[in-house]
């Protein structure tokens, strides 16, 4: 606690006068010496943790529910293990992971003043993002084709909602990266504006780590196994009186 407060302490030495506000670079000095936009982005990501957290909690609560209903003779529609395509999604996950690399390379370029490098890597990142989105679109239409829609069963609802909101985040990211690229092509992003790229990058990497979680929880953890695991967990919880 105290340490956290200490990190907020002002960095002003006291010698410099701040009358008049802006310094030459157009940024007024700040208490922490950090850029306000970057703090805002981190605050947003903190908040987005809770947003995806809620959706992931929803997914995990309903995970296995479709199978249970199916066994009870009330279920309809494809079940997760029948429809999820691990190799295909692995490639998607790899693409998104690589886009994080290109993103960080774009930032490294502009921090050295390499505008050309920035453009190349920004373009690559946006492209990889678009490939991921295309993959997701194809996956969704394929599922639809196989009979799994948003309203088919609780698996469809929770799956499309969770991955769909991740996809929406990626879409916004791609638009953001494209905007940066266009700005750069028009001569807008210079070395001293590397922060613009850094902030977009934070967002982009966050979207990537959310996919790391989703890939594991939604795709890789086997559905039959999670059912037994929760079963055991339920038994244990009942024993301590939570049931």
């Amino acid at each position: 606690m105290a340490q956290a407060v200490a990190t907020l302490e002002t960095a002003h030495g006291g010698g410099e006068s701040h009358i008049g506000g802006a310094d030459h670079s157009g940024h007024p000095p700040t208490s922490t010496g950090l850029d306000s936009r970057k703090i805002a982005m981190w605050a947003f990501l903190a908040s987005d943790c809770m947003f995806f957290g809620s959706l992931i909690a929803m997914y995990m609560i309903y995970r296995g529910e479709a199978e249970r209903l199916y066994q009870a003779g009330q279920g309809i529609g494809p079940l997760p293990h029948e429809i999820l395509d691990i190799p295909y999604t692995s490639i998607s996950a790899f693409v998104l992971l690589m886009s994080s690399l290109t993103m960080v390379l774009a930032l490294a370029s502009i921090q050295k003043g390499n505008v050309r490098g920035l453009r190349i890597w920004l373009g690559a990142t946006a492209l990889l993002g678009a490939v991921f989105l295309g993959g997701q679109f194809f996956e969704f239409t394929e599922f639809k084709h196989e009979g799994l829609g948003l309203t088919t069963n609780i698996f469809g609802s929770s799956f499309f909602t969770l991955t769909g909101f991740h996809g929406a985040h990626v879409t916004i990211g791609v638009i953001w990266l494209m905007s940066l690229l266009i700005m750069s092509l028009r001569g807008g992003v210079r070395k001293d504006q590397a922060l613009n790229v850094e902030i977009a990058g934070l967002y982009w990497h966050f979207v990537d780590i959310v996919w790391i979680v989703i890939f594991t929880l939604v795709y890789l953890i086997p559905y039959d196994e999670i059912s037994t695991i929760t079963h055991e967990a339920e038994g244990a919880l009942r024993q301590i009186g939570l049931g």
Binding site: V5, H12, T30
Partner: peptide, 22 residues
């Protein structure tokens, strides 16, 4: 939420010189 992000950053980053958190 937008208002809250703004307030967080303002308190953290816009304090007058010498105004520590405490």
């Amino acid at each position: 939420m937008l208002a809250a992000f703004n307030m967080i950053v303002t308190v953290i980053n816009m304090r007058a010189p010498g105004m520590t958190m405490m």
